[in-house]
Amino acid sequence: MIEIIVTILLISGAAFMLLAAIGITRMPDLFTRMQAATKAAALGASFIFCAVAFFFSELGVTTRAAATIIFIFLTAPVAAHMLGRAAYLLGVPKWEGTVTDELRDRYNLEKGTLSSKSIDSIKKIPVYKQP
């Protein structure tokens, strides 16, 4: 019984990770790539750690697997948020199918502030160049 559960969890976890990898190669711009990569990968990793917890079914292993899952779900959004913000500030090109961009022209890069209303920022977001 445990064998079946572990196998299903492992394969579905690996399938989610493969999905993340397909997403990262197929998606048209950075933000959609991040959407596809970070979440599906975190979900896949937590499935695999669930499988580990079921397979060993010892207290020490289960708690470590649970701690790892919690850690992944705490850190993945923070990393994605910081990277997304940095990429937006760098002016990474967006997909041509992008419908709206309400963040545009709201950064004041001199003062380092972000307005909640549309303003004419002193410095526009630059065109992306390799740092």
Partner: peptide, 24 residues
Amino acid sequence: TLPDRIVALDLIATLIMGFIAIYA
């Protein structure tokens, strides 16, 4: 772009975590 590569590296780290768990 550089952020794309960072996203890929992050994904690779997660994949390697999966590998190690399977190896365990």
